[in-house]
């Protein structure tokens, strides 16, 4: 299956292991991601909280560039924030004549929301399917206890973005199950980590991250997986300062779902960037005989 790939701005930098592990799983899964030429930033939360026209114009430009690639390709992305903005833009121009006209005036080109947008998690679970995935996963995870963290933007608002239940999603849990892990039942799958405030309102972020880590620990999770390059650093990079502030000792590795997936498909620890994660997952994975 071929897609027009939108990596998003975190891919070459802060979420480099998300990008590396995404590239590592494509071939074994029979996927081809062709990068959208000259793609631009989707504007993220900063765009839609500042200007309603900018919020649609930037993603619409990305989608028009994808359409120019020809072949009626759908866009694939791994960033939950990019995914959300691209899907929200499609919804707005499909449902509101005034917004569609504004986008056409700004871009000098009509865009009616006809380029489909998929998240890699959706593609893996719903196109490839858990049965086929289970067959491809030659290195099963040996019952590793995994808390699947979906966050906000992958599942909300459901009418614009959801391929899963907005309150009780299970796509990632099913993926974990298919590759031999044990999905833990926990309470904070879709609670917000304060992503948009990661630089500006750190006290809120720390409170929310503490709640999430504490819930994962209580549920007996050995690690957390995420599908968003804003959630993962909040839970991983800020884990030490949260532990300090709240007097806790979590030490829970937070991985991208593509990293565990890559491991199960036989990718090397280097290829999926396990060394890039701040709370080192290698002692845990090594103790489990997985690396």
């Amino acid at each position: 299956m071929r897609f027009a790939y939108f990596p998003g701005c975190t891919a070459p930098g802060s979420a480099i292991e998300f990008e590396m592990s995404t590239q590592a799983v494509l071939e074994p899964l029979g996927l081809q991601f062709d990068e959208i030429p000259n793609w631009i930033c989707c504007g993220a939360t900063m765009g839609h909280t500042t200007d309603d026209n900018l919020a649609l114009a930037l993603p619409a430009k990305v989608l028009l560039n994808a359409r120019e690639m020809g072949g009626g390709l759908e866009v694939a992305t791994v960033c939950a924030a990019c995914y959300n903005r691209l899907r929200a833009t499609n919804y707005e121009v499909q449902h509101r004549e005034d917004r569609r006209a504004a986008v056409a005036r700004i871009l000098g080109e009509e865009y009616g929301g006809d380029v489909g947008v998929r998240h890699l998690l959706d593609i893996v679970v719903n196109e490839i399917g858990t049965e086929a995935l289970s067959e491809k996963a030659t290195k099963k995870l040996g019952g590793l206890k995994v808390a699947s963290y979906y966050g906000c933007l992958l599942v909300r608002p459901p009418k614009m973005v959801a391929f899963d239940d907005p309150e009780e999603p299970r796509s990632m849990d099913r993926l974990v199950d298919a590759i031999g892990g044990e999905p833990v039942d926990w309470t904070h799958r879709t609670e917000c980590c304060g992503g948009s405030f990661t630089l500006s309102k750190i006290s809120i972020v720390r409170r929310l991250v503490n709640d999430i880590l504490s819930a994962a620990k209580d549920a007996g999770a050995e690690c957390i997986i995420a599908a968003c390059p804003v959630c993962q650093p909040n839970l991983d990079l800020r884990q030490a300062e949260v532990e300090k502030q709240y007097g806790e000792d979590y030490g829970i590795p937070v991985l991208y779902f593509t990293q565990l997936l890559g491991l199960s498909l036989g990718a090397s620890p280097e290829a999926i960037g396990l060394d890039k994660v701040i709370v080192d997952p290698r002692p845990l994975l090594s103790a489990k005989g997985l690396i």
Partner: peptide, 11 residues
């Protein structure tokens, strides 16, 4: 300015 845009309310 304190709303984190998590969309829980709308949902």
């Amino acid at each position: 300015w304190t709303c984190a845009s998590c969309v829980t309310c709308t949902t």
